[in-house]
Each structure stands twice: as C-alpha cells, then as structure tokens.
C-alpha cells in the first residue's frame, strides 16, 4: 500500500538519488585510479570530471533533503540521524574526489611494482563505499538487517588497512628516493582514507539503527 504523497515521494527519490551518486562516485573513483595506473590520462580526466559532478549532485541533494525535512517537520524522531547520515556520507565522496584530484594535480610517478598494490587499495576502498551505501539504504527500510552490510564495510576497511600497510612497507623497503617514497605514501594514505571515512559513517549508522529498532 503506497502511503507516500508526492512531496514525500520526491524526498524519497532525492535520498535515493543522493545514495546513487555516492555509490557511483565510489565506482568512478576506482576506475579513475585504475585509469591513472594504466597511464590512460584522458580516461582518468573524464573520471575526475565525473566524480566532481557527482560530488556536486550529492551536495545539492543533501541540502534539498535537509530543507525538505525541516520545512515539513518530517521524521522528527530520526531527522537528526538522517541528516547526520547524509552529511557524513557526503564526506566520503568528498574524500574520494579530493584523492582523485590530487592524482590529477601532482601526477605521482608510480613504479610498475606498486601499481597492483594501489589498484587493490582503490578496489577495497571502493567496496567499502559500496557496502556503506547498501547499509544506508537498508537503514531506511530494515534497520534490523543493517549488521550484514556494516560488517562488510568493516571487512573492506580492514582489507584496505592491510593492503596499504603492505604497500607502504614495500615502498619504504625499495630503492626509490626518500621524497618519492613519501610522495607515494601520501597517495596510499589518501586512497585508504576513503575506506576509513566509510568505516566512520558505518559506526554512526550502527547507533542510528539501534535507535530505529522497534
């Protein structure tokens, strides 16, 4: 039985649109890193522009949802939690965008030995983002089932940590100049930060889900 009126339906579409943008941002981030690692700079710049657009879209939708929730006094009990969720989720796509833009600005030279490590790190961070988006969608419908998705976010964040740690050890154990090593570590850290942000949001979401449970 659909109980949505048009205005609530629009709001629901806006929230879905926001989460779509974040999920797509995660995929674009991974593709962007891989394009850079493959040396396909044209494809990489297209991804940079795409993630920039997605980040703007997510920002706009987040603001629209916030305004709508306050104007119509909707979900008074969970309004703060939902707005907190949107705000912190927005920071993940922000972080992903910043990370990709740093590649574009600084153009780090990544030796072939480390490319697979960076690629796997980007994969893990992107997966953490995807799982987080799934968890957020579940929060709106079935808070009891959110644990499975939150578990996956944690899993990918651990994986990203492990890959990043191995990558940094391998970089610092190699023959590169110290400045180059530090430069590469900086990029590893920035990619890893995406999964860290996803984990932070997941931790908040776990609390929100407890508050939503009946």
């Amino acid at each position: 039985m659909p109980l949505f009126n048009k205005s609530t339906q629009l709001l629901s579409l806006q929230i879905d649109g926001f989460l779509d943008a974040v999920a797509e941002g995660g995929l674009v981030f991974r593709e962007g890193v891989q394009a850079y690692l493959a040396g396909d700079l044209d494809r990489f710049e297209v991804r940079c522009k795409a993630i920039n657009d997605l980040e703007h879209k997510a920002d706009d939708l987040s603001k629209a949802v916030e305004t709508h929730l306050y104007r119509h006094s909707l979900i008074p009990e969970h309004r703060g939690d939902v707005l907190g969720l949107l705000e912190t989720t927005d920071t993940i796509i922000d972080t992903a965008k910043t990370s990709l833009f740093q590649f574009s600005v600084e153009k780090p030279a990544i030796p072939g030995d480390y490319r697979e490590g960076f690629s796997r790190l980007a994969d893990a961070s992107s997966e953490a983002m995807q799982s987080l988006v799934l968890a957020a969608r579940t929060f709106f419908r079935d808070p009891e089932a959110i644990k499975d998705h939150l578990f996956k976010v944690g899993h990918y964040e651990h994986e990203a940590d492990a890959i990043s740690d191995a990558l940094k050890r391998s970089i610092f154990a190699g023959e590169l100049e110290l400045a180059h090593k530090i430069h590469l570590r900086y990029f590893a850290l920035n990619i890893e930060k995406v999964s860290d942000k996803a984990k932070e949001v997941a931790d908040r979401l776990a609390i929100y889900a407890i508050k939503r449970s009946l």
């Binding site: 659909p2 109980l3 709001l11 709106f140 419908r141």
Partner: peptide, 21 residues
C-alpha cells in the same frame, strides 16, 4: 504492530507518513 512492521519493512518516510496520518 511491531510484528507487522518487521514483516512489511516499510521505508522510514512511508512509516512516518502512515504514523502521522
């Protein structure tokens, strides 16, 4: 009511609209 909601799993906004109405 809790059982019915757990079975049907309405969207938070749908639940809000239903409760308000």
């Amino acid at each position: 009511l809790k059982r019915a909601i757990l079975r049907r799993k309405p969207h938070l906004l749908e639940m809000d609209a239903f409760t308000r109405l």
